[in-house]
Simulated assay, not measured.
Amino acid sequence: MLHADPFAIRGLLGPDAAPGRRAITNEHGIVLPAFSDHHVHLHLIDEQGLAPHGIAAALDLGGDPVALARRPREGFPRISYAGAFLTAKDGYPVGRPWAPDAVWREVTDASTHPGVPGGAATAVDEQASCGASVIKVALNRSAGSVFDAETLAVVVACAHERGLPVVAHVEGEGMTRLALDAGVDALAHTPFSERLGIRQTARAAASQVWISTLDIHGDDPDAAENAVANLAAFREAGGRVLYGTDLGNGERSAGIQTAELAALDRAGVRGPALIATLADPWPGTATTHAVATFVPGPPPGTLDEVPAWLGGATVVPEEEIVRDEH
């Protein structure tokens, strides 16, 4: 049995952390809420590794909407998805070797009428009819054309009419501002191609959630520095941060990415705030109440140890968990 101080554990890991054990194996450890990765690409990873390595739910941000709609709903990880990227003519990720034709749709008409070929409403309706929980738009000026302000605003309005938030991939100068002006609800990546000013950051913190994806910039120190600085400022301004890895981008095993957690820690998202990014249920469509996160062994002794310690997490059914009552 672990002799862990529950008050110290909550101070390091948040109010829902508790010592406990697995009833079947009698293994002792720390119990936490179920964790989510808010940015993955299932067609590029082995998703079977997610739950054994700590991820109970995942948000696919760019995949074949028909294939995603046909997925079984049982088991873990629970999956929410955007369906296809919506992009401008010849925009990102059209032509990318990792992005087959099924994972993107070119929107070439700002029409709000259903069934118009290339129309904004047509593209949104297709993703919604396939069960999308969010709509994903690509705003990557460095890799092709992007939506003009009018078309983007129509896409966002169509999504909101259907009760769906909009997530944007922003890359290139001015793309975060374009997303903000159009009412985009979330950014798929912390902005990394430019350093945002105080006013723009405050505006984003008041209206958007940001998905972290800090660790994907390992080969680009300038982008990495921009992303960490932007996220730190966003957090200081009261912004809501979600843990997300862009899993499928690069060679990484499925599951919790301790390097992403360490980068969040460097941005000032530490301890209970770090756990909150993992346990946040956004967009709220993947039910995970039947499971918990379990990290075997003793708890971390300091905040500095938390990111690496979380690498031992796994997903365990709630019925198998016995929490320490003291």
Rank of each mutant, 00 (worst) to 15 (best):
G297Q: 14
L247D: 04
G297E: 12
K89T: 13
V170S: 12
D215V: 05
E225N: 12
V306T: 02
A227N: 00
N226A: 14
D219E: 03
S212M: 11
E47P: 05
E194V: 08
E171F: 01
T258L: 11
D324N: 15
R240S: 12
L12I: 12
V228F: 00
A186G: 09
R162Q: 08
H28M: 13
P117R: 04
A67H: 11
R203T: 12
S145T: 12
R10V: 08
A263Y: 07
R141H: 07
E260D: 03
L2R: 09
V228Q: 08
D125K: 07
R96E: 14
T288Y: 14
Y243F: 12
A292F: 11
A262W: 04
G54R: 10
T302G: 09
I24E: 15
A51I: 02
L187P: 02
L231F: 02
P97K: 01
F192T: 11
A292H: 15
S133A: 13
E260R: 01
V316P: 03
H169I: 10
D16M: 15
V124E: 05
F76E: 11
R270L: 05
P299Q: 15
V31K: 06
D5E: 12
P281D: 10
G14N: 02
I275S: 03
H113I: 15
I55A: 03
P52L: 13
P72I: 06
P65Y: 09
P272W: 02
A263H: 13
G218W: 02
V184C: 10
A17P: 05
L2N: 05
R141I: 07
G29A: 04
G301T: 15
A204W: 00
R240P: 04
G75M: 07
T108L: 02
G271K: 03
L152G: 08
R96D: 12
G144F: 04
R252H: 14
G311T: 01
A267Q: 00
H41R: 11
S145Y: 09
A88E: 03
